[in-house]
């Protein structure tokens, strides 16, 4: 099940674990990424915490943790080659996997139709 946040992250939910990345819309706004900093595996994060940082040529932006949970895996491939996020933001360019503290929290997030309406 695919969910979205107002901070332009996508979550692909399966068995209480969310694979999290940033949306195509976010990538278009950011431009070419040159650096990605990911959280440590095992980190316990709360919704709204800065989980990752992305940098384009011009500016740095935070990627927020979309829900309370624990980081169980990170995508080292995008650290080695940030351009993967530009070329495939919603699949190969995933950032981290988050084991949700309360899987039902995801029910409050937007579905794809609501997100696409938000970004117009």
């Amino acid at each position: 099940m695919l969910k979205y946040t107002e901070d332009h992250e996508w979550l692909n939910l399966a068995d209480g674990v969310a694979t999290v990345g940033i949306t195509n819309h976010a990538v278009e706004q950011l431009g070419d990424l040159v650096f990605v900093d990911l959280p440590e595996v095992g980190a316990q994060l709360a919704k709204g915490d800065a989980a990752a940082t992305v940098e384009s040529v011009k500016a740095a932006s935070d990627v927020y943790c979309p829900l309370d949970g624990e980081i169980v895996e990170v995508n080292e491939a995008i650290v080695n080659d940030p351009s993967i996020v530009n070329s495939d933001a919603q699949a190969a360019g995933w950032f981290f996997k988050l084991k949700l503290a309360r899987p039902a929290d995801a029910d409050g997030l937007m579905d794809e139709a609501a997100y696409l309406a938000l970004v117009g």
Binding site: G31, D32, V57
Partner: peptide, 12 residues
């Protein structure tokens, strides 16, 4: 204009 459709990296 801060950038054109080509983007900062390619423009540079």
């Amino acid at each position: 204009p801060v950038q054109f459709p080509e983007g900062v990296m390619k423009e540079h």
